[in-house]
Nucleic acid binder design. Structure first.
Lengths: 147, 147
DNA sequence: TTCCTTAATAAGAATTATTCTTATTAAGAT
DNA sequence: ATCTTAATAAGAATAATTCTTATTAAGGAA
C-alpha cells in the first residue's frame, strides 16, 4: 500500500470534518492533498491550478473558502510570508521558514524550535500562545551570486 | 532639549536620504515621526490619518510610497502580521512580536533573541540572512476572559 | 537669490488578492 | 429514495496596494 502517510492524513481530515459538522467534499480532499504533496508552500491560485484537472470547474473562491476551513480544522496553516499572497503549509512537525527574497521560495528549516519560544512566553505570563512563527528572510544558496 | 532620540533618528534619516539620492521631504519626515512615536505598529491608513493635520492634503499613496522608501533605507520595517494590512515598526532593538488574535494589538517581546537564529542559519550555510522575524500569535492578558 | 532639473507629490484610476451574493448542487441523515 | 441544508460555481464586490499623469518643490548650479 502506497501513500500511507497521505491516507492517514485524509482519514484524519474526514474525522475532523465529521466532528465539526463539515461535509467531506471532493474539493476539500483534493485541495488538502495538493497542499500535502507540495513542498513549495503554495498559494491559493497555485492550488487552484493544480486541482483543476481533478475538479474541472472548481472556483477560485472555493479554494479560498476551503483553505479557511482546513485552517480552522488545524490541517493546514498560513505561512506568514511578507508577500502579497498568503501561502500554506500542511507540515506540523516543528520547523521554521527561510524565505528567499530573490526567488520567493520558502524553505523549511528544521534546526530551530518554536517550542522554546512558546514556553518562555507562557512562563512569563505574556499571553496565551496559539502559535509561534519563526521566519528568516534572506538569499538562498541557489540565488546568491545571481544578478 | 527634548526628543533627543527622535532628533537623532531624523538626522540619521536625512543622512541616509542624501546617501541614497533621495530628497528630504516634509512627508518623509512626518511619516517617519509618526511611526517612531507610535507603539502600536501602525498600518498605512492609520499613519495617513495621524499626519493629515501636519500635511493637510497628503495622499494615501504617498504614505505607501514613503513606507517603501523608509523600508529600503532600513529606517522602518514591515511587521509580518498575518493581517490584511501591513504594519510597521521603527524599533530596531532586537525584539519579537506578540500578536493578539482578539484585539489585533501587537506587543513587543524583549526576551527572545533573533540573533541566535541568524547565527545558526548562517553557520549551517542555509542562506544569507537578511532578517529574522519571530512572531507569536495568541491571546493577550487584556483579552483573555473576554467573549 | 533665482533658475533649472527632476524626484516626489496629489489625485484619482487601475490592479489584484480576497470575500460576498445568489442560484444550484450534492453530502449525508432520515 | 427523499429531504435538508452545507458547499459549490459564477461572477460581482471589496479593500489594500500600486500605477498614471500632471503638478509641485528639493536642492544643485548659475
Amino acid at each position: 500500500m502506497q501513500n500511507t502517510e497521505l491516507n492517514k492524513k485524509l482519514e484524519e481530515l474526514k474525522l475532523r470534518c465529521k466532528k465539526a459538522n463539515l461535509r467531506v467534499t471532493k474539493q476539500r480532499l483534493e485541495i488538502y492533498k495538493a497542499i500535502f504533496e507540495s513542498k513549495a508552500h503554495p498559494d491559493a491560485e497555485t492550488l487552484y491550478n493544480s486541482i483543476k484537472n481533478k475538479v474541472p470547474n472548481v472556483a477560485l473562491d472555493t479554494v479560498y473558502r476551503t483553505l479557511t476551513s482546513l485552517e480552522n480544522l488545524n490541517m493546514v496553516f498560513r505561512v506568514d510570508s511578507l508577500l502579497a499572497k498568503a501561502r500554506f503549509d500542511a507540515d506540523y512537525t516543528p520547523h521554521s521558514h527561510f524565505l528567499c527574497t530573490k526567488c520567493n521560495e520558502i524553505y523549511d528549516i528544521f534546526l530551530i524550535t518554536a517550542q522554546d519560544v512558546k514556553n518562555e512566553v507562557q512562563k512569563k505570563g505574556l499571553g496565551e500562545v496559539v502559535d509561534v512563527n519563526i521566519q528568516v528572510r534572506g538569499i538562498c544558496p541557489k540565488c546568491s551570486g545571481k544578478n
